[in-house]
């Protein structure tokens, strides 16, 4: 593992909680590593496993899905569906030879700027230890 490896994290954040929480980290000027690239969706339930798989197949070292805390989903139950999909997808990723911890699910509310920044810090650290995603290099 190279010393200068900076993991590239693809983030899917729901508009009402995750994205707002990341905004809160910004307004509070909380500094965190620049590894994540955020895509906004209205609900974490919008996220299709194929989006996560595309990200990984194209070389994202980690994929982060952020939704509302269970029970607080702006659309009632979307995050419960996300939770189940992610668990099943992690199993599939493990069977496909990926470290399942490359896919990470977090619940961050709109007021949890500090938590969001901590998630990025922690995820980047863990991904550095796992190493770069080699999927792309080996594409046929």
């Amino acid at each position: 593992m190279k010393e200068d490896f900076e993991p590239r994290i693809l983030g899917f954040l729901c508009n009402w909680c995750g994205y707002a929480g990341a905004d809160m980290a910004g307004t509070s000027r909380i500094q965190y590593p620049a590894n994540v690239r955020i895509i906004r969706v209205m609900c974490s339930g919008r996220i299709d496993p194929s989006m996560i798989l595309t990200g990984l197949s194209m070389g994202a070292d980690g994929v982060l899905v952020v939704g509302c805390h269970l029970g607080d989903c702006h659309y009632v139950k979307g995050n419960y569906r996300t939770e189940r999909r992610v668990h099943l997808l992690k199993k599939m990723l493990g069977d496909m030879g990926f470290d399942p911890s490359r896919l990470r699910l977090e619940w961050v509310s709109a007021s949890e700027g500090e938590k969001f920044s901590q998630v990025i810090r922690d995820f980047a650290e863990k991904l550095k230890k796992i190493g770069p995603n080699s999927a792309v290099k080996e594409m046929p």
Binding site: D23, R29, I30, P33, A34
Partner: peptide, 21 residues
């Protein structure tokens, strides 16, 4: 594109990385 809350405000001391982001 959110260059403020998600970039300049949170990567103030890593200007190169902020630019790449």
């Amino acid at each position: 594109a959110n260059l403020r809350e998600h970039d300049s405000w949170v990567h103030m001391f890593e200007k190169d990385k902020a630019l790449e982001k």
